[in-house]
Design a protein around this nucleic acid. Sequence first.
DNA 1: CGCTGCCTTGACCACTTTCAATTCGCGTGG
DNA 2: CCACGCGAATTGAAAGTGGTCAAGGCAGCG
Lengths: 234, 234
Amino acid sequence: MPTTRLDRAVIRDLPMFRPLSPEDLDAVLAHAVARRLAPGETAFRQGDAADAFFVLLHGRLKVTQTSADGQQVVVRHVNPGELFGIARAVRRPDFPGTAEALTDSVAIAWPADAWDALVARCPGLAVDALATVGQRLQDAHTRIRELATEAVERRVAHALLRLVRQAGRKTDEGILIDFPVSRQDIAEMTGATLHTVSRLMAAWEAKGLIAGGRKRVTVRDPHALFMLAEGEGR
Amino acid sequence: MPTTRLDRAVIRDLPMFRPLSPEDLDAVLAHAVARRLAPGETAFRQGDAADAFFVLLHGRLKVTQTSADGQQVVVRHVNPGELFGIARAVRRPDFPGTAEALTDSVAIAWPADAWDALVARCPGLAVDALATVGQRLQDAHTRIRELATEAVERRVAHALLRLVRQAGRKTDEGILIDFPVSRQDIAEMTGATLHTVSRLMAAWEAKGLIAGGRKRVTVRDPHALFMLAEGEGR
DNA sequence: CGCTGCCTTGACCACTTTCAATTCGCGTGG
DNA sequence: CCACGCGAATTGAAAGTGGTCAAGGCAGCG
């Protein structure tokens, strides 16, 4: 796991560190290391001791959770600038999921015990963390409601729209989701099977709503997708 | 909404206030009011301005979320001693759900702006809140995984076991869930229909695993239920 | 005593999953 | 450079779960 020393420029522009002076920034980075992750590498695995926490500088990760019998779900995606792996801050001794890089990524890692010191120097961080976790809780409740009440088609449409919002990149073909997403991934995000997702997406592709490829999705007609996701049915 | 003045004895024994001196306790209570809720009354409703936060002293609440098209899910149950309605602490302007009393209940309410002052006087509270929200996030992810990967029968078994853990009271019939739970409620907790839940529970009752009644559930054989919830299937 | 909710139960069928082949795309190594 | 091989995606057919529709029954309360 290659690591490098850090310059304060790399975190100066992150919202959570915005209020800090240059000296503060240096202090914050004193115990931090950067870590580069190739696609498929993991920052941490489910069940590992939560001995660090992270900020993603560049790239994309997915966080998954696997049940005792091997069933896997995608918990969320991590985008640049976001805190992740803060299990310890919520008083958990181990990581509840696995964080895997989808593209070449760079994260900063702090030892878990640095949390308290960091918060002391930068009180905004705790507030930020609370707001962040609160927001994730909202998102989780939204997903629970979707899983509990919506049909598969709608859930898949919602998932695609969420991916577009998080990582959409405009191209002349439409809006490309800017990291590799397999049908299996979408299935694990929506609680459906690979097969059902494939069939749905094939149908949408035939109608021109989206364009697909191996681990690639481009949304051509977001509005039509939105109608599928929200529309009052028929 | 009947309110009364508060004596510090009522909060002295709550874990989050444990470290406070008697003077601190009085200060904490200075702006608080107690509020009594009859079954069916709500502490707040989805969409209301988040102008207060609460601790439940006595009774039980359920928190529900309703989607635009009227579909409802039970987000969680609130037990005595727990913080609830802390939307404002996670920087939300409104409540994302509705909190309804299931039994006669008493809650303490603070105006939302009291949060910062309270945290200043009692720093443990922020830590506690972060841990609480973090725990809820874990629970939410667990539920997401269940909804995404498990069959209805297992989900219902899990839901009953969770209710037993939260509010089980030993009787000579078995373990009674100590507040009113309708089949509809269980359906809204598990993302199933009332009908499916009723059929499942009727079958379990025939096998002697549980005993039912109007808004009442008694678990007679928790171990057998656990097998259904976790067992490798057939 | 008659409501008003809550619960039960049957019949039917739609949607998803399961099972099973194939095809396709891409990176690898000969 | 091409053949190979593996993971990803597609697609058909069959099976089954759980939802929808429809009719009561039962209990507590005014």
